[in-house]
Amino acid sequence: MKPRIHPVSRPVVFRDRAAGVAFLTRSTADSDRRVEWEDGASYPVIDVETSSASHPFYTGTHRVLDTAGRIEQFRRRYGTTAPVGR
């Protein structure tokens, strides 16, 4: 790797405001606000609205769309047509 062209990576705390969960990871992002972590050290903190702790896909609370029902509803409303090209 070439020296002096890559951004500095540092430990940063990301705090999910919706779930009340925080996790420490490395990032190039920086913040003026700091928080004291479980190890007693102070790290920059970045507040996020959604993370894997609160996103419906990862928590298992996402809704599955009934695509087969939508297709049938479309066919009832507009009818079916013959396949194109045959």
Rank of each mutant, 00 (worst) to 15 (best):
M1I: 11
M1G: 15
M1L: 13
K2Y: 10
K2H: 09
K2G: 03
P3W: 08
R4H: 14
R4Q: 12
R4Y: 15
R4G: 10
I5W: 10
I5D: 09
H6L: 13
P7T: 07
P7H: 03
V8G: 02
V8T: 10
S9I: 14
R10F: 00
R10N: 05
V12M: 07
F14T: 01
F14I: 07
F14D: 00
R15H: 10
A18R: 14
A19E: 02
A19N: 05
A19F: 03
A19P: 02
G20L: 03
G20I: 04
V21M: 08
V21W: 03
A22Y: 00
A22G: 13
F23P: 00
F23C: 05
L24T: 15
L24G: 06
T25Q: 08
T25M: 13
T25P: 01
R26T: 10
R26E: 10
R26K: 08
S27R: 04
T28D: 07
A29P: 00
A29G: 03
A29Q: 12
D30A: 15
S31A: 15
S31V: 02
S31L: 01
D32L: 10
D32N: 13
R33M: 09
R33L: 13
R33Y: 09
R33F: 08
R34T: 15
V35Q: 08
V35R: 09
E36P: 01
E36F: 06
W37G: 13
W37V: 08
W37E: 04
E38Q: 13
G40A: 06
G40H: 06
A41F: 07
A41R: 15
A41L: 12
S42L: 10
S42D: 12
Y43H: 11
Y43Q: 04
P44N: 11
V45M: 01
V45A: 07
V45R: 00
I46H: 01
D47N: 09
E49S: 10
S51Y: 01
S51C: 12
S51W: 03
A53R: 00
A53D: 08
A53E: 05
S54I: 04
P56W: 01
P56C: 05
P56T: 07
F57M: 09
F57A: 08
Y58Q: 05
T59D: 03
T59R: 09
G60P: 03
G60H: 04
G60T: 02
T61M: 01
H62C: 01
H62I: 00
H62S: 10
H62N: 09
R63T: 14
V64G: 04
L65M: 06
D66R: 08
D66A: 11
D66K: 12
D66W: 06
T67E: 09
T67I: 14
T67M: 13
T67P: 00
A68E: 13
A68C: 02
G69I: 05
G69F: 07
R70I: 11
I71A: 14
I71S: 07
I71H: 11
I71Q: 11
E72C: 03
E72M: 13
Q73W: 08
F74L: 14
R75N: 08
R75T: 09
R76I: 00
R76N: 14
Y78M: 07
G79F: 12
T80V: 15
T80K: 12
T81H: 10
T81A: 12
A82F: 05
V84F: 13
V84L: 10
V84N: 03
G85H: 05
G85D: 07
R86H: 06
R86L: 12
